[in-house]
């Protein structure tokens, strides 16, 4: 299963390259493009990024595996990431995680729901401590959470 950027991302990648004096600086932007296109970064995608940047695949893996936001395995369509750090914990993040586990039927953090639609994780501080407890669902922040808000949020997902 080989991987290449689609035409739109090829154009975006060329524009990105022009912003840096060294090719390798396009590493994170290229990995983001790959993840956006495919929802996760496969070994083939890393090989492709390596070929674009003139690096070995191992070098790309070394970098991709350092950052928590790069999914090196497929995840659910909806990724709930509950902030677990101090301010959120003081404001009840543990209850939020517990509620979501039950609601989504997920036993272990990091796992997917049985139907594969949802992934539930706990993450470190998301910089939204004033509206704790909170979570990130895919790109968006959801703040000042209550069980009722979580119900509404889950119901709104197609």
């Amino acid at each position: 299963m080989s991987f290449t950027f689609n035409d739109e991302n090829k154009k975006k990648f060329d524009a990105i390259l022009a912003r840096y004096p060294e090719k390798q600086a396009a590493m994170l932007p290229a990995l983001w493009l790959a993840q956006e296109q495919n929802e996760w970064i496969s070994p083939e995608a890393m090989e492709y990024v390596a070929s674009l940047l003139g690096l070995t695949p191992a070098k790309v893996y070394e970098v991709a595996s350092f950052y928590t936001m790069f999914n090196l395995e497929p995840i659910g369509k909806y990724h709930f990431q509950v902030c677990r750090t101090l301010s959120c914990q003081l404001c009840g993040s543990e209850d939020i995680t517990k509620y979501l586990k039950e609601k989504l039927g997920i036993q272990k953090l990091g796992d997917k729901s049985q139907d594969g639609r949802f992934t539930l994780s706990e993450v470190e501080c998301l910089g939204s401590c004033g509206t704790a407890p909170m979570l990130q669902l895919n790109d968006d922040y959801h703040e000042d959470l209550t069980p009722q808000k979580l119900d509404e949020l889950i119901a709104s997902l197609k």
Partner: peptide, 12 residues
């Protein structure tokens, strides 16, 4: 002056 926004990927 050129300004470029560079996105991190989750690392304190």
């Amino acid at each position: 002056l050129e300004i470029t926004v560079h996105r991190g990927a989750g690392a304190y």
